[in-house]
Amino acid sequence: MMTKPELMKRMVKGPDGLEFEVDPLRDYYCEAPPTVMPGAYIQIVEDFFNWARSQSLWILGFGTGCGAIEMRPLMTPRFDAYRFGVAWRPTPRQANLFIISGYLSTKTLKRAIRAYEQMQNPKYVIGLGSCTINGGMYWDSYNTIKKLDEYLPVDLYIAGCMPRPEALLAGFEEMKKIIRAGKAEGANQYAENFAWYKANQKRVIHDWDMPDYNW
């Protein structure tokens, strides 16, 4: 593991003149790995939660690939995804749905993992376009990943190159059905197989210079 200078232990002098030690990996990040979130004790309560969750899909506005260009029409009156309770949020902390909009280069994969881990539970991932499914156009490219579910738990794939906005709308509806049925267990799956996911991620991200779990 390479270490960036800003992640190394150092002495910092505060504005008031006091010196103190900072160890960013311990002080700024939580070391505890993610844990499985158990469902509610009574099934009917869990169903109610799932119904509520399905009604507000808040998307993280992180355009990772070409597919991001179709997000704009979705936000505007023509397709208007807002009427389905779908909204775009600028920060991972406010979002619960991460749309991987197309190919992921290894450099973006690193950021996508960080963004995913920073999102609050329960969280879902949609893979958009054939690039996330099997590499698509870039099946022989040296810089893009070919199979998204090796690195992040994917709940739903939307096929197409590039998928039309209507396909995305259908995908949102499908996603809601999955959530309501209680089958969108991506975050728990990630917590359960945390070591496996991390090993896969580290295999393609060669300069791993961040904490293993940064939320």
Binding site: C66, S105, K107
Partner: peptide
């Protein structure tokens, strides 16, 4: 570099007509 797909390399591997569908990307 977040969107680098290595187009210029991929094009070298494809015939002239195979390059055509990927250039627009």
């Amino acid at each position: 570099g977040y969107l680098h797909r290595g187009f210029e390399k991929l094009m070298e591997r494809r015939t002239f007509i195979q390059v055509f569908p990927i250039v627009c990307r």
